[in-house]
Amino acid sequence: MSLLRTQALVAGYEPGLPIVRDVSLSVEAREIVVLLGPNGAGKSTLIKAVAGLVPYVSGEVWLRDESITGVPAHRLVRRGLAFVPQNENVFAGLTVGENLSLAAAVLPRPRRAAQVRAMEDLFPDLGRARSQRAGRLSGGQRQMLAIARALVVAPDMLVLDEPSAGLAPVLVDLVMAKLRQIRDGGVAVVLVEQNARAALAVADRAVIMVEGRVAHEGAGASLLDDPVVAQLYLGGRRQQA
C-alpha cells in the first residue's frame, strides 16, 4: 500500500479554473519524489491541494488506507503529513525554540520536549540559535527551521514547496543532503523544485508535470540524462549546478 496516493485529482483556487487537471500519482514510504515542470504546470498547486490548502474540484487523495479528500489543513498534521510552504514558513516573531515547541504542541505532552531536542540534534545550528528570533535568521537557517518545524511532529511524510528558493548553491546542497538524511530516517519526502539538477541528485523518483497533468515519470538520477526530460524541461542543455 502506498503511503500517499492521488487519483484523478482536479484542483484550483476557483472552481471554473482548475490548475491541476487530472493527476494520479503515488508516493511510497522512505522515498524522495521530486515534482518538476515549467512555471504554471500546477506542481505547487498539487502539493497545496494535498496539504488541504487549495480546494479540490474532483478526485481523491489517500494517506495510507484513509481518504484525506477534503480534510482541512489543520487536521492533516495529526495524520502524519507535514507541509513546508515556500514563503513565510516560520513564525518570524517567535524564537527558534518557540517555533519548535508551538509546532510540537500537537504531540502528546510527554513526547514534546524529546522531539524538540531531536530536532536540535538533527539541526545543530538551530540548537545553538534557540533563543534567536526566527525573523532574524539567515536564509539558510530559516529554511532549516522551516523544515525542522514540520519534522518535529515526526510525520510519515514531509512535503516541501521549493525548499531551495532564494538560497545560495552551497546551501541548496546542504538542504538536499538534509532531505536525504530525513528519508534515511524513515520519512517520505515530496518536493516541488525549480532547481532540477540539485533535486534530481537526491531524488529516488521524479514526476514531471506540464499544464496540470503528469507528463513523464522516472527514476531520479536517470532523468538527468533522459532526452525527453531535457527537451521538456531542462531546455535541452545541461544547467550549471
Partner: peptide
C-alpha cells in the same frame, strides 16, 4: 499583505 496570504 504578503502575496502568500493574498492567495489564501
Amino acid at each position: 499583505v504578503p502575496p502568500a496570504a493574498r492567495a489564501e
